[in-house]
């Protein structure tokens, strides 16, 4: 069995507790306007323009984005940092893209991780079947679960998909007592207005409270702009500015009513 992966990042410090290795699956059913990993969206291997520098000379070449990886070869990389996981209370995070789109592989690798006593986190958009969630829940210690918007029409405009299945899944996994970190991208003009924020807060408030152990507010950033042009993709959010730290603080303050620890980066 193989999965299409586009990157493995070791020493990841914001994708869950402790020091982690994050595996980025390629392919996503969503196409969020602000996506900072546009190379993660397509389910195919793409060719991207890349440059490399030797001294003053820069050359350009075509770089293949994405490769197929077996469970074993992924486990080999994950195991390399198991000491750091142990010392820091870290582990492995499956991210993407949408890892749940390659559910059989995800399940297989999660089972292997649990066999090796490695803490597992799945970073998901939530846009997957409940059946898929049920499969992986026994082997997943933590979900990093995105809420992008509560209004389903807005959600469709911003991400290309309806949010009802997403919110439904979130309610269900919290009811099951799974540990969840909620991640909210803060995208000016998209979801940072008072109403959008307040709806998100209300939604979280009605979830089973002890399941949510952290809220991450992820400020929009423009670092991915060059990725769009290198991939020959259109960037739909070029006109938006990064939120100021004051704006982020203001959003954070609103969330404090939930009495859940809040981190403003991720």
């Amino acid at each position: 069995m193989e999965a299409l992966i586009f990157d493995v990042k070791r020493f990841a410090v914001h994708d869950g507790p402790g020091l982690r290795t994050t595996i980025f699956f390629k392919g996503c059913p969503l196409s969020c306007l602000w996506c900072h990993n546009p190379e993660s969206q397509s389910f195919n291997i793409e060719v991207c323009k890349a440059e490399r520098k030797v001294g003053d000379r820069t050359t350009f070449y075509d770089k293949e984005m994405g490769y197929f990886s077996s469970v074993e070869s992924l486990m080999d990389i994950i195991r390399k940092d198991s000491l750091y996981f142990e010392e820091s209370g870290g582990g492995v995070t499956f991210s993407g893209g949408e890892p749940m789109m390659q559910i059989d592989f995800l399940l297989a690798v999660l089972m292997k991780c649990k066999e090796a006593d490695i803490h597992t986190a799945v970073d998901t958009s939530g846009f997957a079947s409940w059946d898929s969630f049920q499969k992986i829940m026994p082997y997943t210690d933590l979900f990093l679960f995105d809420i992008k918007h509560i209004d389903s029409e807005k959600h469709r405009l911003l991400t290309g998909v309806d949010n009802s299945v997403i919110l439904d899944n979130l309610s269900k996994i919290t009811n099951f007592g799974k540990k969840v970190w909620i991640r909210i991208p803060a995208i000016p003009t998209c979801n940072t207005d008072d109403n959008s924020i307040s709806n998100i807060i209300h939604f979280i408030a009605q979830l089973k409270s002890d399941a949510i152990s952290q809220i991450n507010i992820l400020p929009f950033h423009k670092l991915a702009n060059h990725k769009y042009s290198n991939l020959g993709l259109q960037n739909c959010l070029t006109g938006i500015n990064e939120p100021t730290s004051d704006e982020i603080q203001a959003i954070k303050q609103k969330f404090e009513i939930l009495r859940i620890p809040i981190l403003t980066k991720g």
Partner: peptide
């Protein structure tokens, strides 16, 4: 905490 874990490892 994270760098402490790096050193300890």
């Amino acid at each position: 905490d994270k760098l402490t874990a790096v050193v300890r490892s």
